[in-house]
């Protein structure tokens, strides 16, 4: 009798394990099914035409925008971002650099995006532009210039911000993203303090989210992490958001970009 019970308990344990395993497998299967038709491509197409369309008070295109590889070079630019730009004297991520280009080339004020709402107006334009740029770094290795002292400084700042606890729940980024095997509902949370997790995260954002049919940039993703911590949401393209991106990208150094990603 005792033996039977023991067997039953063991069977139950195995079944529990198998179930957790199959849930992860089913999600992986689902991803595979929808990966073929990633609607991020629609945003990429829109972004490409926006890139080449004269807009703003100066009626200019973004074809002379310098993303770090020279004016107009989009290929591989995202794989090397965030990076230090001598003309602005700042380390910039993709979105903040696009803001600079929109302002200097097209005369569109940065406030149109910074003070805007998600999925509306110029912020929506930003989503499409980001989709276009990141697609042209897909399959390339993440290669940040960590020898640059400014980038280095931002890395240290980002690392501190990542572990800084705040808000009514005393959360930091590390509370959810500092250990292996954590999840929210059925969504596995990557451990961003290790290379593997950082590659999974940094390498697959910006992404299209199937659950709400929206395309999210890293700026949007970070903002929502702050919101979920119930703490103050950062200003669009502010120093802390760029610093966190530098921290993630540097941790993911050498990993291959799968951008734009596809999320639930």
């Amino acid at each position: 009798m005792r033996k039977t019970l023991g067997m039953a308990a063991l069977a139950a344990m195995l079944a529990g394990g198998a179930q957790a395993q199959s849930t992860a497998d089913e999600i992986a299967k689902y991803r595979e099914m929808i990966a073929d038709g990633n609607p991020a491509e629609l945003f990429e197409m829109e972004g490409e035409s926006l890139w080449k369309t004269p807009r703003g008070p100066k009626k200019a295109t973004l074809e002379q925008c310098d993303l770090g590889q020279g004016p107009g070079v989009v290929d591989g630019a995202f794989a090397r971002m965030p990076r230090y730009f001598a003309d602005t004297g700042r380390v910039q991520d993709l979105e903040s650099r696009l803001l600079t280009c929109m302002e200097t080339l097209q005369g569109i004020p940065a406030s149109a995006v910074v003070d805007g709402d998600w999925n509306k107006g110029e912020r929506k334009t930003m989503d499409a532009l980001a989709a276009y740029v990141v697609t042209h770094s897909r399959g390339q290795k993440i290669q940040l210039d960590l020898a640059n002292p400014q980038t280095r400084r931002m890395y240290e700042l980002g690392k501190r911000a990542f572990h800084y606890r705040s808000g009514p729940m005393d959360f930091s980024c590390a509370t959810c993203h500092g250990e292996d095997g954590k999840r929210i509902r059925l969504q596995d949370l990557p451990n961003l303090t290790h290379k593997e997790g950082a590659i999974a995260a940094w390498g697959s954002w910006p992404a299209y989210r199937v659950s709400n049919s929206q395309f999210w940039t890293m700026q949007h993703r970070l903002n929502d992490c702050f919101r979920q911590q119930r703490t103050a949401e950062p200003v669009f393209a502010s120093e802390v958001t760029v610093a966190l991106s530098v921290y993630m990208a540097a941790t993911a150094q050498g990993g291959v970009l799968q951008t734009p990603g596809l999320k639930r």
Partner: peptide
């Protein structure tokens, strides 16, 4: 049918 439909 979902937003931004995919058909194969």
């Amino acid at each position: 049918v979902s937003t931004n439909p995919y058909l194969s």
